[in-house]
Design a protein around this nucleic acid. Structure first.
Lengths: 220, 220
DNA sequence: CGTAAAATACTCCCTTTGGTGCATATCGCG
DNA sequence: CGCGATATGCACCAAAGGGAGTATTTTACG
């Protein structure tokens, strides 16, 4: 079982097609007694076949560019077969799309190959303890991408005044003009007047429409 | 100007209320010639005041729990005054809400105080080069939170009937009972009757509330 | 200082909505 | 078959909402 109870050092598997890099990693990681590389593969298919007959390692270090099945598809396959398994992407690629795809596939971390050896080891160990090691460059890409996703609305504010935005918020919260008036210590008729202005600016004519529009366009 | 062209070492400012920690950081970071701590404050207000009279540093290390203005509000203020400035949160707190709030406020990185000194320095330097250093533990929280955001609709349907869901969709689209009735070839009073049932099932009492609830809980 | 925009407030009028009660038709299921 | 849930419909009423007009005070800005 991948990710099962450990005894002794954290067990690793490496999937990396370049022989020198693969052997370099095996050697390098072999120097530290806290981890133990139990297998390495140059193709993802090799790992998947191996896992059908053997207890899985604690962590898989996965390259992305591989002959045959790529690292992201392999991650997805691994996750669906062993949901508790920990896959860390270890690559030189940092395209936003690739990064997002990796995490969507279930990768727990994304480390760049230019990471210093001692830092690499720390990152790998952190993954075993419920962490998600992500190289700073990768993290920035990821945040940028998610920020764009989340909002990026050019914030069409329709020329609403500060007061009108306040009123709008309360309406979206379901308040009547009377309740709204009490909360802001103004007359109900004034609250209504503000709303009428908002209606004109947003080109709608009922509370239901305005709530929909405000939520859709994130005016609140 | 924060984040402006550098000459020589990366300049840092530290905002941290605990005297020992602050002085420890100043000392520790002072050992490396690649960075230079140009100021430190125990309150965010001090930093903001200082920035009004002085050219800003490359990077601000910001604690979250501070007397007076907290680190997240300070980050927001800093970002709105100096959009190019780089703020790294340096704290012991790792609550998902706090983490999200920090990034939404404009923080570029989020480092935990238990980070080893040499790693801390690497992280700080990576931020200057378009990176976003994020401690593994924090990254995991962030990914979990963002994953949750995207999907997870337990789809509470409140026992609505098929007809009621139809009516609900139209109401969310901003139709009046009359328009809705025409569209479905039923009487307006019937449309209203359906809505009254929906009100009871969802425990609300106005179109505005139902639109809000339907959109919030993805009932449409 | 003067002007324009914004915020405040009221009146009148009509429409829509929310709430209640009552009634009929249909359908599925035990 | 009869029961309950669903869908349909109407009447009535009070509350809220939408629209138009007018007017005073505050605030912002050149």
């Amino acid at each position: 079982m991948i990710g099962g109870a450990r005894s002794g050092p954290t067990t690793l598997v490496i999937v990396e097609d370049q022989k020198e890099v693969r052997e370099g990693l095996v050697y390098l990681l072999g120097l530290d007694p806290r981890v133990r590389v139990v297998a390495s593969f140059e193709r993802a298919e090799g790992l998947l076949a191996w896992l059908r007959t053997t207890a899985g390692p604690d962590i898989v270090l996965m390259d992305i560019h591989l002959p045959g099945m790529n690292g992201i598809d392999a991650t997805r396959a691994l996750q669906s077969a062993h949901p508790a398994g920990i896959v860390l992407i270890l690559t030189i690629f940092e395209e936003p799309d690739t990064i997002l795809a990796a995490f969507r596939a279930g990768a727990k971390g994304y480390i760049l190959k230019n990471t210093r050896p001692d830092a690499l080891l720390e990152q790998i160990l952190s993954a075993r303890d419920e962490g998600s090691p992500i190289s700073p460059t990768v993290a920035r890409r990821l945040l940028d991408e998610l920020r764009r996703d989340g909002q990026d609305a050019p914030a069409a504010d329709y020329g609403l005044t500060a007061r009108e935005r306040e009123v709008l918020r309360d309406i979206v919260d379901g308040l009547t003009y009377r309740e709204l008036a009490e909360r802001h210590h103004i007359a109900g008729s004034t609250a209504k007047k503000h709303m009428l202005h908002i209606y004109q600016k947003l080109n709608v004519s009922s509370k239901a429409e305005i709530v929909r529009k405000a939520l859709d366009e994130r005016l609140v």
